[in-house]
Write a protein that binds this DNA or RNA. Sequence first.
DNA 1: AGGAATTTGTGCGTATGTATC
DNA 2: AGATACATACGCACAAATTCC
Lengths: 235, 235
Amino acid sequence: MAQTSELPKFIQLSEMLIREIAAGRLADGVRLPPEREMADELGVAVGTLRKALADVEAKGLLDRVQGSGNYVRHRPAVDSVYAFFRLELLQGGGLPKAKVLSVDRLPKPAAFAALGGHADGHRIRRLRFLGEVLVALEEIWLDAGWRDEVGVADLTDSLYYFYRHELDLVIVAVEDRIGIDVLPDWTPSAFHLPAGETVGHITRVSRSAAKEAAEFSRTWFDAGRATYISRMGKG
Amino acid sequence: MAQTSELPKFIQLSEMLIREIAAGRLADGVRLPPEREMADELGVAVGTLRKALADVEAKGLLDRVQGSGNYVRHRPAVDSVYAFFRLELLQGGGLPKAKVLSVDRLPKPAAFAALGGHADGHRIRRLRFLGEVLVALEEIWLDAGWRDEVGVADLTDSLYYFYRHELDLVIVAVEDRIGIDVLPDWTPSAFHLPAGETVGHITRVSRSAAKEAAEFSRTWFDAGRATYISRMGKG
DNA sequence: AGGAATTTGTGCGTATGTATC
DNA sequence: AGATACATACGCACAAATTCC
């Protein structure tokens, strides 16, 4: 089995920065504070912060200029955990976390049978947090063709990380469908969402040149606490 | 003007490793010595070596496995200074260096007029070393359209580095032509090469989607000291 | 099976170099 | 020319993954 532990600090940092930039709270062209100052504020060593900044730069969201500073570059799409993580706290901030409720291998519902080549799927149900705030419930179907068994322990806070490192899968497209039907077998009762606030999105993942859509996920989120930002949605 | 200094140590290290792998002296699957041991032998800090190894891994030539080791992965083409640097000492090894003899802006010879859109070109003449061994003379024509002035001080040991960082140019293709005519105005007399040992190659460079071939270079090398390895040559 | 040894990963702190302002 | 800020490099301690006995 895999680790239960948290993601490395430098990744958490880079993801947080990417998130801030992608969400627009760090506007294009903004200069970040000096690294040492920033590291002090965040309570990390300079080297750790630098590793995170290098990450962000590699993803094209930051210009690092020696002798000058670190400048935000706004880009629409990013190769990151948060490229497709688009739940935002209304007030901003909040490091994304997830708590896995269950992972079960089940026959795929008829509606998703066409996605992926296998009859079974792993049904993952998670609670999603931003900081300490519970903002959403999520149900994900991952085609069983990618892996025979998936345990709760395999999944870190970042599903994307799991896809990338454990399954060698890359997310290639996301399609949003507002108002998708809620499945009858799991209507979350803890959330009282107005109609139309339920969002389903199909996440297509692929390994190398394969084209199978192999994951499907639906999210019920609390519109009173978070907003759903759709950059590629089709309405 | 730019720096005259050497490339950073970690880049020198990664390029050396890439070179060893590309040349086949580090075979596929080979496990490198432990990092600390390797760092001691090379006389560098572990962190510096690790940065170099990360570089090599990013280029797909190395598998780094925690708790196990660093494993060589053989790949045909590499995004590196040495992807197109194919002079090899017969005995192997030797960090590539170059000494620029001259840089002059001149009208491009008729033979290369078609390469690039400008009438002028920068003619760069260099001595190339592997380690301390002088192995080749080289003449490069860089289309003046990319930059008005090029000084000796602009050029580091790695032309590729200069292209990438100063001109934002990427080498996209290389075509070798064995036995290309030696220009009458600069037949190197210090080398006595048998006929047919002269190698010319056209290096096509481009910025983003531009397709202009904008550089031409010819190399006279000492067949007694080095070999010319052509991976993409057309004979 | 399981614990010790090995090896890479992460994180910290610091000193010095180099580019920019 | 001086101050500021990022880049490189070093060394250390501990964590995590693997391998070996």
